[in-house]
């Protein structure tokens, strides 16, 4: 009485998207089964970890998050290089914090200068993450798309408010867009339809479902991603058949549970190891739900997660 695992009937497949160019270009997506369900399908491209780099020196980072980077934190180019050279980053997400209208609010050209320098300094794919302010990103990301001509970078978050501005430039310069919707399957689908109508190539779209960190809404992102994947793979919902990116690092590291020291709350244990695990557990959970790219901060969390991806894809 040999028992067979009941198989899910998959009718769809996630599109493959290439990021970057040349030898270090990375392909993501392409799966025709649920995440890591390799006994019944293929995941031709393993999920990837992207290292985050900020375009301006972070002021409120924990000592134990600063430690692995030290003095490069004030120099985005050196920081990106360190991620690639020292920690083996396969892609870089440049977070344009300095452009935030609620913060430093740097001008577009000043910010784009730094983006160009970082793009020129690395050979791995570059993903450029804006401020999540629709208006500012509309200006900023379209210029990024232009300035990074020929690099096949990804730009986002692109919303239903600024998709026309950014999308048009992304088409013009053949860049990838990261289509962002607020934790909702239908809104994600709707935006992808809008991008399609605009003429964005289907091999140039990645979904950003909006990421909640561990203890702060992770479950909402988790279930929206599982629903995305169910629709994409079993209900032939072509407008959801895109790879997913989760920009989790800032969400995890801003929480108070990654800031409290063991002295302040002994029950939470060692602050460094706890924070690393909070980041790694968030990433692991999102990977199981279907993330193709997880954006992470601490090299030790990255190692843990890569190890698990390796085992699950062994």
């Amino acid at each position: 009485m040999a028992f067979e695992i009941p198989k899910i009937k998959y009718t769809g497949k996630i599109r493959e998207v290439q990021l970057g160019t040349g030898a270090k270009a990375v392909r993501i997506g392409g799966a025709n089964c649920y995440p890591f369900h390799r006994f019944e399908g293929d995941m031709p491209n393993v999920p990837r970890v992207a290292f985050e780099v900020w375009d301006s020196s972070p002021e409120e980072w924990q000592q134990w998050a600063i430690e692995p980077y030290g003095d490069v934190l004030s120099d985005p180019v050196a920081w990106a290089r360190k991620c690639v050279d020292t920690y083996g980053a396969e892609m870089i997400v440049l977070q344009l914090r300095s452009a935030d209208p609620n913060g430093e609010n740097k001008g577009v050209e000043e910010v784009v200068e730094v983006v160009k320098k970082v793009a020129d300094a690395i050979d791995v794919p570059l993903l450029v993450w804006g401020t999540a302010n629709d208006e500012k990103d509309g200006e900023l990301l379209r210029r990024v798309a232009e300035a990074c001509e020929g690099r096949n970078v990804a730009v986002g978050p692109v919303s239903d408010k600024n998709y026309k501005q950014i999308g048009a430039m992304a088409i013009g310069y053949s860049q990838v867009v990261m289509a962002s919707s607020p934790i909702d399957v239908n809104l994600a689908k709707q935006l992808n339809i809008l991008l399609g109508n605009l003429g964005v190539n289907e091999e140039k779209v990645v979904i950003d479902p909006t990421t909640g960190g561990l203890g702060y809404g992770l479950e909402y992102t988790y279930s929206v991603m599982e629903r995305d994947r169910m629709a994409a793979l079993t209900q032939e919902d072509a407008k959801l058949q895109f790879p997913i990116i989760c920009n989790l690092a800032p969400e995890v590291w801003k929480t108070r549970e990654t800031r409290l020291t063991k002295d302040e709350d002994p029950k939470l244990g060692d602050e460094k190891r706890r924070s690393i695990l909070m980041e790694a557990v968030t990433a692991m959970t999102l990977l199981v739900a279907g993330a193709d790219i997880v954006v992470m901060r601490h090299p030790d969390s990255v190692s843990l997660v890569r190890d698990m991806i390796g085992e699950l894809c062994a």
Binding site: L214, G215, L218, E219, Y222, E257, K262, P266, K267, L268, G269, D270, E271, R273, R274, L277, M278, V281, T285
Partner: peptide, 14 residues
């Protein structure tokens, strides 16, 4: 604390 707390939090979420 450091290994358990993140796990309990994840369990609560899921």
């Amino acid at each position: 604390g450091e290994t358990l707390f993140p796990l309990l939090l994840q369990r609560l979420n899921i």
